[in-house]
Design a protein around this nucleic acid. Sequence first.
DNA 1: CGACAATTTGACTCAAGTCAACTAGGGTGG
DNA 2: CCACCCTAGTTGACTTGAGTCAAATTGTCG
Lengths: 248, 248
Amino acid sequence: MTEPAHAHSFQTTCSACALAGVCLPIAVSGDELELLDQIIQRKRPIPRNEHVYRANETFTSLYAVRSGAVKSYRLTPDGEEQIVGFHLPGEIFGLDGLGQARHGSAAVALESAAVCEIPFARVSELAGQLPGVQSHLLQLMSREISDDQHLLILLSKRTAEERIASFLVGLSSRFRRRRLSATRFRLPMSRADIGNYLGLVIETVSRVLTRLQRQGVLRLDQREVEIIDLPRLHEVAGVAMPTDDPCN
Amino acid sequence: MTEPAHAHSFQTTCSACALAGVCLPIAVSGDELELLDQIIQRKRPIPRNEHVYRANETFTSLYAVRSGAVKSYRLTPDGEEQIVGFHLPGEIFGLDGLGQARHGSAAVALESAAVCEIPFARVSELAGQLPGVQSHLLQLMSREISDDQHLLILLSKRTAEERIASFLVGLSSRFRRRRLSATRFRLPMSRADIGNYLGLVIETVSRVLTRLQRQGVLRLDQREVEIIDLPRLHEVAGVAMPTDDPCN
DNA sequence: CGACAATTTGACTCAAGTCAACTAGGGTGG
DNA sequence: CCACCCTAGTTGACTTGAGTCAAATTGTCG
């Protein structure tokens, strides 16, 4: 929006980005990537609690997280928020309002975050020409559907302990994918956010976490997590989490 | 699969179909529709409990319900099924495995059903040429995302009563869209399916339904529903259901 | 007509929610 | 540098909505 004509303001090109291979261009090669690179805008950092977009705003762009973390949520009819996803570096968000003209959800930075903005009109054009982009787009959307459906299963059939274990396992593999430690990381979201996402009250989240800690499965210090016994955590989870399950 | 070379075996063309305007071609016009018509295959009726596709089968086609009803479900890691959607005449299903090579869910007929099969490779081609098709495809997927997220909210924050009321309200508007009665219809699914979908046990479904009946909100006779006080039902629901909420 | 499947109803249980203190950090301003 | 406050998180005691188990009822179909 407030981006100057010369869009490449903040940092590298896609090909030089540390997140290449995690992010959008994964299925895109050579000159395709170059084209893409020209339409992606790197926005200045977004401070904690600031919105990337709000529910009902006109849909113009997809976004990729470069650093920090973002949550997206919907408003329930009674005005509460329901978090529908957390987005870590290298992940794309904002797909929801894609067919519609407006966003159905809102996205807000959990901590100071940098995002790339990808004007959809341009991607759409590209998609017409490059089947790689087209199919990658569809892949992203179907992954989103998959993720939501995994979460559905979690919410409709799983106990508090299973939900939280799954959640942590899921985070763990997302960190691993970025070649960060899968067993030691910092939670970018509050207990309240975790609870909201998993359909639990904050007290329950807290209790389950301390229980897992007492059982020696993990160690917690504030938002720092160390998973001591990952196999055990998998067992407790029983079910795979969104975005970490290769078999879709 | 077993379809003869001459694909147009069962019934009309899209333009003559009673469901035109509800189904896929809604955003497609004139000769586009004709093209589409040539790639859609009308399969012979699928008997109750027979699968349209199974989880993990290679993804080849989208499907549209012509008559009857279909549910799609995922298998949880412990082998139970989690229903993720019900599909009524005029609705498209099978979008889930779209980006992936395989279906993540399975689809099975709830009652004897007729479906149209839409080979995706052909649609994909078309989409490259006709932006109308392309954008309609995206629209379908984002509606699916929306629907799943509505269901998420339902499951994570709502009481049994609210879930069931929402479910009925949702069905009601889907019947209305087909220009059928919004207040008198037959449930195509069992109580067990409703419960599974809404994250409730069958006994709870039954109890809530009888309670709503006692309160004079609706009348039930087996699977026949008559909604006596739709506004009241809306109130009880508190939240809108998947696929009936125009504001995405 | 029997057998099986689907649904309803009742009695009891329990996982998670509610309410209410309490604790620990993390700033901020004097 | 410290007193203070504010937010995030933890813990305990109690309540409750929905699940479990069990039995009765109704519908369906060979």
